[in-house]
Simulated scan of single mutants.
Amino acid sequence: MPIKQNRHDQILKLIVEDFIDTAEPVGSMNLLEKYNLDCSSATIRNDMMQLEKEGLIEKTHHSSGRVPSAKGYRYYLEHIKNSEQSYEVDEEFKKEFALVLQKKSQAVEEVMEKSCQILSEMTNLATIVVGPKASQDLLASIQVIPLNSNTVTAIIVTDKGYVENKTFSINDQTYVNDIVQAVKLINKRLVGTPIEELADKLNSIRPLISDLLGERTNIIMEAFMEAFMKFARKRLETFGTSKLLELPEYEKEKNNLLNVVKFLDNPEKINSEIQNLDDSIEVKDDENMAIVTKNVDINGQNSGKIAVVGPKRMNYKKILASLEYVAKTLKQYYEQQGKDDDDE
Rank of each mutant, 00 (worst) to 15 (best):
K114M: 13
E58L: 14
M112R: 02
Y75A: 03
N165V: 06
D38S: 05
A232E: 11
E113N: 09
Y333V: 00
T174W: 06
S303N: 14
T174K: 07
D343R: 14
Y35Q: 05
I179K: 03
K234S: 05
H61N: 10
M314N: 02
R7G: 00
G338I: 08
N203L: 10
N302Q: 09
D279V: 02
V129N: 01
I270W: 02
N30I: 04
D343F: 15
N271I: 06
E253W: 12
E268P: 01
D340N: 12
I209M: 13
S135T: 09
E96D: 13
K81P: 01
P68Q: 07
L119F: 12
N302C: 08
K81C: 09
I156T: 02
I186R: 01
I80Q: 02
P2F: 10
V260Y: 07
F239L: 07
S28Y: 01
Y334V: 03
S322R: 03
H79D: 04
Y162C: 02
T153Q: 15
F97L: 11
I118P: 00
D342P: 00
S169L: 13
K254N: 07
I319R: 00
I291W: 01
G240Q: 07
G192E: 08
E88W: 09
L202Y: 04
A42R: 08
K94Q: 13
K188W: 12
K104E: 15
P146I: 06
M1K: 07
L125S: 01
T174F: 11
E253S: 05
K103V: 15
L213P: 00
A199Q: 07
L77P: 01
A327R: 00
S135M: 14
E237G: 00
L247M: 10
A307Y: 01
L101K: 06
R66M: 10
N124P: 02
E197I: 03
V16W: 02
V108I: 15
L125F: 10
D286Y: 13
K53W: 03
V108K: 08
I270V: 08
K133M: 11
I156Q: 01
V144L: 15
I118D: 00
L264Y: 02
T329E: 13
G300C: 14
D343S: 11
A307C: 15
I11A: 00
I80S: 00
S41G: 06
